[in-house]
Design a protein around this nucleic acid. Structure first.
Lengths: 136, 136, 136, 136
DNA sequence: GTGGTCTAGACCACT
DNA sequence: GTGGTCTAGACCACC
């Protein structure tokens, strides 16, 4: 379990931890029953305060993807994968809505957005290039 | 000039104003020389603190899309449209990249994202759903 | 809005605050739109650390009974009364279940528990003595 | 002697053991002279740390309901039943008081609580639910 | 003024 | 060892 923190980011450190762990669960890198690093260990590794890690873990617990047992540590819950996938799906939908609303306010039409969308997809990962548009 | 403020959002109120005005300029709803609502009027309409509106206008001035004349008010600057359009394009590209990266991390394929995209577009604005809407 | 804290209790201070505010909402003492005391004011009044109050308020926000606006303060949300009532109802059901399970493990029958129940109700508030059961 | 442990609960595991054994004694399921499971056996059965069981047994010893003999094990003491019965009665009364006070603070009347009570009793153990067990 | 985040460190309880 | 709570105080951002 590798976590990367950017202390210069405007996103709170504990949020970065929460999101990374959710993604790790959604992608299958963390599976139900797996132990999260202990508060102190994570804090030492990331060079942050243990309380900040605790804040993240508590958030994960409230979101139902982690179960914490006093004196033992925190573990990925059985229902975590579906919960994490659901979180991810919602975040994705929110992101898409945001893009579409931005486009509407900019007076940019749907077709043009879709075009931009395809362009960016190609730029980020050529393999994603769709089902038929051979680009070379 | 209609502004919508969500005081619940984690995005600062002044940021919401700045972005919406930039989009209004980019879309042509606001054109060079047009007057922005006065600080007091905007504050009354949006039911927020005048200082918050002032902060937004100041930001717009620093971004070069608005010019403020003491005692007269704030006006869309001549160079605003191109700056705003650039801003809009960049914001849109950032949003799209964000969506695509999220999808990748969730293991959601490009085709599936595009499907979601079409669904949301239809949900947000049925008129956009057509596959043939020439928008000019 | 009066809060009473017992620092000797085993119940965390922030939990005491959370529960008291929920009860105040459920009972109608706090109504939608009402402002909660500011973090610092509450901390000063209760002679505890502001962060502890913040923890309580954040919990209330996650539970949907309070909305916090950066730079303004925390307010009872519109949906708070029903949410608080629901919380209360669940807590009551949990408490009743706990009593019944305890009784079962003690080999105390349902009738005897109900009798105890009536006795305690009378002891705590004679007016509650029920509609008809003269018990001696 | 069946113990049920919920490692998720906020109630310490050793407390859960202590209370359940006291109830077993109060109900007569465990009688003076009966042996408690050995530390190791209980730990293996409950899948918890032996030290946790030891802590529970030590607590039971301090409460005078169990006597431990080095190398032999722990046994229910002669005076245990009355002590345990007293414990059980008090715990039950505390639980009932708690429910009643909660209800009062929620503005829920005694009759409604009694109704809830009957409902839960039926849900937890249909055999208790009879409407014909006249309790007076 | 307000809340939000983070640190450093103490103390407690559970395993 | 583990997590949970609380304090004291700093720094930031928003209104």
């Amino acid at each position: 379990m590798i976590l990367r923190i950017d202390t210069t980011s405007s996103i709170p450190v504990y949020d970065q931890i929460v999101e990374q762990i959710k993604r790790a669960i959604a992608s299958g890198a963390l599976r139900p029953g797996d132990a999260l690093p202990s508060l102190r260990e994570a804090a030492r590794t990331l060079r942050i305060n243990p309380l900040t890690v605790a804040k993240a873990y508590k958030q994960l617990e409230q979101d139902g993807v982690v179960e914490t047992r006093h004196g033992l540590g925190s573990y990925v819950s059985a229902s975590a994968p579906s919960a994490a996938a659901e979180f991810g799906r919602q975040a994705l939908a929110r992101g898409i809505d945001h893009v579409l609303l931005d486009a509407m306010q900019l007076g940019i039409g749907f077709d043009e957005v879709r075009e931009l969308f395809d362009q960016r997809a190609l730029a980020l990962d050529p393999d994603n290039g769709g089902t038929d548009n051979a680009h070379e």
